[in-house]
Amino acid sequence: MRRRIALLALLSAFVLAPLAAGPYLLSVLVVVMYMAYLGQAWNIMMGFAGQLSLGHSLYGGLGAYVTAALFVNWGVPAVLGLPAGIAVAVAAGAVVGALGFRFGVKGVYFALLTIAFAEFTRVLFEHIPSLGGTGGLFLPVGSRDGVDLLRLRGHPLMFYYLILAMAVGAFLLCRRLLACRIGYQWLAVREDQEAAQALGINVFRAKLAAVMLSAGLTAAGGVFFAFYYNTLFPTQAFGMGRSIDIILAPIVGGLGTLFGPILGALILTPLGELITWGTEALGFKAAGLKQLCYGLSLLAIVKFLPDGVWPWLRRRIGFDPADDEEEGT
């Protein structure tokens, strides 16, 4: 009961936040929700099914590029381009997953395989002139006042509520999945693959389902990114940096938990902004200083709270882990 109330309070705080927030704070909140959403998507693969993907930018980038290219070149509205983008990303996920799982590429090697695919695609897209190459793909900026959900053009507020809805949707979906047959299968595979196989679980299918679902959700996040920022560069859409950004929130928040990605995003994004603000207020304007502080903070978090912030906070405020989701340990 206490959990329900806390959840509702948190949700209403986010729904009402734009009333108090100026344009700057709204843009920060958009990033928070975007990171929470992507973290949730990645968590399905790593937190639930135990498959470490370090190349998740591949799926976000593919979704973004396909949908944006359809829009820029043929004026296809985002609502029609989105399924195409998701389909391409899911297919890519299926290829990576099938190759990895069929040929027994495990652990670190699987993680490196995912990086290899993402980097391969990055260089490939840098050499496709019709998609802008290294120069980038730019979406025409339309009116910033209206609300056109079909074309994903409009006011920043529309984007905020859209990404909030996506984050809440992903949260509910993950919650539902964990109570389903496939959710239990994932946890079994994560804990002990051989034992899961002995129980008659089709391990290959379960893992493939996790990759494809995670890829599809990530692609939708990529589409949001493309239409919100209106620019796409291969280095930024497919680069290692993007993949690292995706996985930070759930790991800092708490791997395998439903709240982890949200809490992680709520910590990391404001932390980055705070560091920018702090270094500027102190009169430092050196390039790299912000990222340096960010790296140091990250180091401190993994060193002192290795299980993530949420499991620690949960104990502190006395929530019973049993009615949250499964335990990581």
Partner: peptide, 12 residues
């Protein structure tokens, strides 16, 4: 994550 944070520190 540990080594990536070290890498971020070194690059910047």
């Amino acid at each position: 994550i540990l080594l990536v944070s070290l890498a971020i520190i070194m690059v910047n």
